[in-house]
Amino acid sequence: MYRALIVDDDRAIRYELKKSPVFGKNKFLVTGEASDGKEALEKVRAEEYDIALVDVRMPRIDGIQFIRELRHSGNDLCVVIISGSGDYAFTRQAIRLGAFDYLLKPINPGELNELLYNARLFLEKKVEHRTLAENTSRQLAESLKLPYSVQDEADLFHLIKENSGKSVIFSEALAVRLANFYEGDTFKLSIILENSYKNLCRMLLSEMPWLGTLQFKGPELSISPSADTGSIVAAFTCSIKELSDFIGNMHISGTYPLIKLLCEYFIKNVEGRTTLEEAAKVLNYNSKYLGKVFKEVTGESIVNYITKIKMERARCLILSGKYKTYEVSEILGYKNTDYFTRLFKEHYGHTPLETKRASR
């Protein structure tokens, strides 16, 4: 069972939520409650919770400040904001700070049920990733007897996944440490770093299997054993940066759960006619709200993002050699092949046909 904390200064709402059967139905157990953000922070520090349903307006510390304090301390607790219909600005701010979702008062049992169902899926993936990362890192470290802790690779994976600039600094320090350990044996160093990098890409695909739609394998990393230590370290660090940049470019880091869910939907449904309106229906959000939040968080419009991932998929289909340009255009929902070709050239600098010829 996942442990839930309810935070609201209205005792009636806390009571109503605690008695709701949809928590148990979705494998949640309400194990704590608080009347304001200050009390909630104290409870989170003293006990472990998987999710917190938090009122946006409360005395002492409100819902927004509660999330800020959590994230500042490094706590990635799944937070759901409870807000009134007039609290749009606060709700938007909470989503930007990393809130998983929001509920409007008065709370509808059906909406609560759907939210808890989605939250359970999110938490299950989170647990799976953590277990996979720990097991994989432990096996790799034990088999190769690497001079770094089991946790190091899991930490690097987390930094990459969050598109953190620290991933480059961390990977360089890790590679230098390995280079010093192997005392100039560039053959061992190159093999180990290549294996570690491939493992990181596999971990990413295990957590986000829908990236397979784009035939994601990660940026290429090929190190010549005859290269000097500095070149090997630089190549590894550069590939880690490219991998982290890819996560940022696709907006699939875990920093903003709603944005990640939206981008996941678009990538899964990249073929055919892909629209914000359809995504909004599936995710049970207002399309205008999603468009605004996406633009504010990413700095990119939904239309540009959909075009970008369609071009990524188009390149995969073209390089497969199985399709003609007009067929790729139709698969991706473009009725006009000339328009599709123009978009592709604007994105890559060359036409689909030139891309196919260059790959031969």
Rank of each mutant, 00 (worst) to 15 (best):
M203G: 14
N195H: 10
L178N: 13
V168H: 00
R202C: 15
K166C: 02
M203D: 13
F187T: 12
G184L: 07
Y197M: 02
N199W: 01
E194H: 09
V168P: 00
L204N: 08
S171Y: 06
I191W: 07
E162Q: 10
I191Y: 10
G165I: 04
G184C: 08
I192W: 12
E183K: 09
A173F: 02
N180D: 12
N195M: 11
A173G: 15
A173L: 08
E162M: 09
V168R: 00
A179C: 06
Y182M: 00
Y197K: 01
K166D: 14
L189R: 00
F187Y: 09
A175P: 11
M203T: 11
L189V: 04
G184W: 06
L174D: 12
D185G: 13
L178M: 15
N195Y: 11
T186C: 06
I169A: 08
F187H: 05
L200K: 03
I192G: 02
T186S: 09
L204E: 12
D185E: 11
K198V: 12
F187S: 07
K198S: 15
S171T: 15
N180W: 01
T186V: 09
L204F: 13
V168D: 03
G165S: 10
R177V: 08
F187V: 13
E162W: 06
A175I: 03
A173R: 03
K198H: 15
N163F: 12
R177S: 15
L178S: 12
L174V: 10
V176I: 13
D185N: 15
R202D: 15
S190C: 03
N199D: 08
A179F: 12
L189A: 05
Y182K: 00
A175S: 14
R177Q: 14
D185W: 03
S167V: 05
C201V: 15
V176A: 11
F187N: 01
I191L: 08
V176G: 07
F181T: 06
